[in-house]
């Protein structure tokens, strides 16, 4: 790249620019495929899907609030599970380790790149928040979930496990900005603490799954104190607002469902005839 003429062999040799099969083979299967917007597969009857289908995934670059990196980790002291075994179990039982009253509706097969899962979360005030995540990356020792527009935060969470001095450490690391001004206020007024408790509970439950009474170490770093006001309009996708409106509409939907339809109100001609 210094302007020197290329040697003939440089012209015919496959270069990294051309994506050699070797380069692709190493991690191509670990990443989600690029799609214009998120699509949710089969949805369970009790899951609410109003904020995921058709949305795009968002990184911290598209977020609004201060940027945070939060790291939660637990050492599985005395346990025998390898990092690969921890991640395998974590993927297979992901929602099992969550605090109660929070639901993760993912594929039954576990967590794989490109999967989109619905989340129905209980927020302060018993508000049910309907949102989701994209499995952005997954390999044997880690997996990463990326959030959609309207989620509380823009960014991703990487779940990983590694060996440290002969002991396996399980870790969840969040890189995030609040998605809009309303979420930024919410995070400041207790939302961050709630999130910390959520992942501390998760890691404690994961450790217990491997028979370890682990203590979670939490580290929080403010990576960027600046708020990105150009992204304040993200509030139009706010899943909390939309979920609240959806909840308020529940009685009307119930009435609408129970209202007899035209065919039900008009009995067939022989409906009231006595049977023989």
């Amino acid at each position: 790249m210094d302007g020197a003429p290329q040697r003939p062999e440089e012209i015919i040799e496959p270069t990294n620019q051309e994506a050699t099969p070797e380069a692709i083979a190493r991690d191509a299967a670990n990443w989600a495929k690029l799609t214009p917007s998120l699509t949710v597969g089969e949805v369970p009857a009790d899951a609410v899907n109003i904020n995921v289908t058709g949305r795009r995934q968002v990184s911290p670059i598209q977020g609004f609030g201060k940027m945070w990196q939060k790291t939660y980790k637990v050492t599985l002291t005395g346990g025998s599970a390898t990092p690969q075994e921890v991640i395998s179990e974590w993927k297979a039982n992901f929602p099992k380790f969550w605090p109660p009253r929070n639901s993760f509706y993912g594929p039954l097969t576990g967590i794989a790149p490109g999967d989109v899962a619905l989340l129905n979360l209980t927020m302060p005030g018993r508000l049910k928040l309907s949102t989701g995540v994209l499995v952005m990356y997954a390999d044997d020792e880690s997996f990463t979930l990326m959030t959609p527009q309207g989620h509380m935060f823009a960014g991703w969470i990487t779940f990983s496990a590694y060996d440290k001095g002969g002991e396996t450490v399980a870790q969840a690391q969040v890189l995030m900005r609040a998605n809009d001004p309303m979420y930024e206020v919410g995070l400041t007024m207790g939302g961050h603490r709630s999130e910390d408790r959520f992942w501390e509970h998760t890691l404690t439950a994961l450790a217990a799954h491997f028979g370890v009474d682990g203590e979670v170490d939490t580290q929080v770093v403010c990576v960027d104190k600046k708020r990105q006001w150009r992204n304040a309009r993200n509030i139009r996708y706010n899943a909390a607002i939309r979920s609240s409106l959806y909840s308020m509409g529940a009685p009307f939907r119930a009435v609408s469902r129970s209202k007899p339809t035209a065919t039900e109100t008009t009995p067939p001609d022989d409906a009231n005839k006595p049977t023989a």
Partner: peptide
């Protein structure tokens, strides 16, 4: 110098 694969990852992550 990004391969097509990593270009797509930059798009996926919106970098």
């Amino acid at each position: 110098g990004l391969t097509d694969h990593y270009r797509q990852i930059f798009e996926l992550t919106r970098l």
